[in-house]
Design a protein around this nucleic acid. Structure first.
Length: 753
DNA sequence: GGGGGCTATGGGGGG
DNA sequence: CATAGCCCCC
């Protein structure tokens, strides 16, 4: 292989290069932490494109949408803008995108709703109530996870009933009717034109499985090259979909899986390491590459990680090593209480920032449970250290936001019963619980949606008026939706549903906040509609329907949302930290019953997965690693005394800093200025252009060399316009020679010269 | 039918 | 400690 013209391959070591250039046939890459996996994945795709593979024929499945965007961004630096045509994203988001086109072929509307966990639980609760079952025994959360597990293993309600093992387990747990709930739940979702998260996979499977000629063929032809990152965290269903796409007569089996069994941490949602073993069976002629050199962490950290993971018996044989310096030994903080743990971590952060000149964004605090964030937030706030908490209640999970979104959902898909139940009496319009229950029952008895019941069945005089009003309201929304863009509909709904009025009446601080959230939501939709810029790593999105907006936000996690102040300390669960790296990492709450969690200890044989989780946690650190625990902490109301985590003992002394004894520090004085702590969601000011004099030009008139004015970015020069009518523009007011890509079909540009 | 206050209970990770 | 769910009163 000649290196001329392929300089990016020089950035890889031998084994990485072999993995990145083995394009044909099945490939398995076992990649230890920090082993340059992302680099291999990106250059592998770049290499394909350089050798003439059409980017649209590449399917690259990643664990988060953010990872996908970053990957495309990096590929673009090698092969240019066509990198954006690669199909890269999560299983859920890419399948949702395909289902938006194909869902009608399997009996769903293309504008299907995505039910979140709350919607799902609510449907299940309703079924349990209707069946007169004990809600204590049939806890909706438990039932939901049984159903989810069944779906993840391609077990239909009928197959569930026929499965002796599942039924025996349910009988033992005194829940023999889960299969009935499952069947009713599936029927209800179908009737509601709704898919839950598992359905995005399951219905994708059905689509491909049941339509071999029109659909499966098409996607087999389209996705000639498949790459799957974090394969150790895929479930059976996901793997079966991959096989439908890959295994067929004449197939070249161009599938590359990348993963690390030692980092498998999602078995609770159906992920199974068996997939890796099965892959070896299904593709016996596969080529295997092991990336064992760690470029991320210094020696003490790598050695400690090896010591820890070696306590697990079942493993794919590998030896992670590094040629980096020994670095700093791992620091242990032993605190008396969780409050002191928080203080000591905050103090240590300040010390590290001074001594090692660290920025906030180079530091992360990782915990086992999200509930642990609060104390660290308090302490960081005290010290005026900016931080951001991931994984908490996301913006779209807030009640008022969900309420408004429910109206939108119902307007787009009137079969969405969960949305209907949420808003039929909100704001209050005198349709009470018993009436709603009655409607729901009528819907079930007649196998129609609740909306159909409202529009087709006559009600007694008491509720007739209020129901009539509600039906009229939704009809008005639908009429508006037929002739307006997403923002106009949303704005109309917000103002005419009564939600804004209701919130305005609430003068409390919380009420004000809720109103602000509604405004932010509307702003967000406006931005979605108006956005004419193609961000780096983003594909050209020309579908600006409300329906698309709703689907996008259902699959968004707050790791995907943009951060406006980038220099913040990261607070997140170890699970969310997968794939990330930081110069300095604090792993906190290392106590028995917390990490490893009491659930894992109670269930038995889950300690190995907790250990893998701990392994993931410590391998996030590049140079500084600090492990902390508290002697006592409040858990559910009372003081608990837990022993230090067994994982601490698995690291030998030679990798540890001497244990620092507990010493009380004086209270840190309350800072005077807390002002620069800005809540998330506030908007940055836009460049001001006189809107009144503004006249947008016809897209076809924009030519390279012109000076133009953009409402958001100000004046700039058009550098080029491509065949998709995407212009590259350099704006005067912006940094460096940073070109913006603007979609002219949506652009608001005025020609100056 | 709606709101307020009290009691019991849960107890993890996420798309 | 939180908060969901329940009961009671308006």
């Amino acid at each position: 292989m000649t290196d001329v013209g392929y300089s990016y391959l020089d950035e890889l070591n031998d084994i990485q290069r072999q993995a990145a250039t083995a394009l044909d046939g099945p490939v398995m890459v076992i990649a230890g932490p920090g082993s340059g996996k992302t680099r291999v994945l990106t250059y592998r795709i770049a290499h394909m494109i350089n050798l003439g593979v059409n980017p649209g024929n590449i399917l690259s499945l990643t664990f988060t949408n953010k990872a996908a965007r970053e990957m495309k961004d990096r590929i673009e630096r090698v092969v240019g803008p066509k990198a954006q045509r690669v199909w890269a994203g999560t299983f859920h988001s890419l399948f949702a995108r395909i289902l938006r086109v194909e869902a009608h072929k399997i009996g769903y509307p293309n504008d299907f709703t995505i039910y979140d966990t709350d919607d799902t639980k609510s449907v299940i609760t309703e079924i349990i109530t209707q069946m007169n079952l004990d809600k204590k025994v049939y806890a909706p959360g438990v039932v939901r996870s049984r159903i989810s597990a069944a779906k993840s293993n391609l077990i239909t309600p009928k197959a569930y009933l026929a499965n002796e093992e599942l039924m025996a387990y349910d009988k033992m747990a005194r829940r023999p009717l889960i299969h009935v709930i499952y069947e009713k739940y599936a029927a209800k979702c179908m009737r509601a034109g709704a898919m839950d998260f598992d359905d995005l996979l399951l219905q994708m499977f059905r689509l491909l499985y049941q339509n071999p000629d029109q659909v499966r063929d098409k996607y087999q032809m389209q996705f000639k090259y498949l790459m799957v990152d974090e394969f150790q965290d895929t479930n059976y269903l996901q793997y079966e979909i991959l096989k439908l796409l890959t295994v067929y007569p004449g197939s070249k089996n161009n599938i590359c899986i990348v993963g690390d069994d030692a980092q498998s941490i999602y078995s609770f949602r159906g992920a199974t390491i068996e997939n890796i073993l099965q892959f070896e069976n299904d593709f016996p002629d596969l080529q295997t590459y092991k990336l064992e050199q760690n470029y991320r962490s210094t020696q003490f950290i790598v050695e400690a990680a090896n010591e820890v993971i070696n306590h697990n018996k079942r493993q794919i044989q590998k030896k992670i090593w590094t040629d980096r310096i020994e670095g700093n030994k791992i620091k242990i903080i032993k605190a008396s209480t969780e409050t002191e743990e928080g203080k000591r971590v905050a103090d240590t952060i300040i010390e590290q920032k001074n001594r090692h000149n660290l920025q906030n964004k180079e530091i992360a605090i990782l915990y086992r449970t999200n509930g642990q964030s609060r104390i660290f937030e308090e302490q960081l706030r005290r010290h005026n250290i900016l931080y951001r908490v991931y994984g908490g209640l996301s913006f779209y999970a807030r009640k008022e936001v969900k309420d408004l979104i429910a109206y939108m959902r119902l307007t787009i898909n009137d079969k969405d019963d969960e949305a209907l139940k949420r808003v039929i009496n909100y704001p209050r319009r005198g349709i009470g619980e018993s009436t709603i229950e009655n409607i729901s029952k009528l819907a079930d008895d007649n196998n129609m949606s609740m909306w159909e019941v409202l529009t087709k069945i006559d009600f007694n005089q008491r509720s007739r008026k209020s129901i009539g009003d509600f039906v009229q309201l939704i009809h008005a929304f639908k009429a508006k939706a037929a002739k307006s863009n997403a923002y106009e509909i949303a704005d109309y709904i917000a103002r005419n549903s009564g939600i804004i009025e209701l919130l305005k009446a609430d003068k409390s601080v919380e009420g004000l906040g809720r109103l602000e959230n509604i405004t932010s939501l509307l702003d967000g939709i406006k931005e979605f509609v108006d956005d004419d810029e193609i961000q780096v790593g983003e594909e050209m999105n020309t579908d600006k329907s409300l329906s698309t907006f709703l689907q996008t936000i259902s699959l968004m996690t707050d790791a995907d949302t943009k951060e406006e102040n980038p220099d913040t300390v990261t607070l997140m669960s170890v699970h969310s930290a997968k794939g990330l790296e930081f110069k300095s990492v604090f792993v906190v709450g290392l106590e028995e019953n917390l990490f490893p969690s009491f659930m894992a200890l109670a269930e038995g044989n889950q300690v190995d997965e907790e250990r893998r989780l701990f392994y993931v946690a410590i391998t996030r650190a590049e140079e500084l690693l600090c492990l902390t625990y508290a002697h006592s902490r409040y858990q559910y109301g009372n003081m608990r005394f837990n022993d230090p985590s067994r994982f601490l003992e698995e690291i030998s002394d030679r990798n540890l800093d001497s244990i620092i004894s507990i010493h009380k520090k004086p209270e840190f004085p309350e800072p005077k200025i807390l002002g620069n702590f800005k809540p998330l969601g506030s908007k940055k000011p836009m460049l001001s252009v006189n809107v009144d004099d503004f006249v947008a030009a016809n897209p076809n008139d924009i030519k390279p060399g012109m000076e133009v004015i953009h409402l958001k970015f100000g004046q700039g020069k058009v550098m080029s316009v491509d065949e998709r009518l995407v212009a590259s523009i350099v704006f005067d007011g912006l940094d460096e020679n940073q070109e913006k890509r603007i979609m002219l079909q949506f652009a608001k540009l005025q020609i100056v010269t």
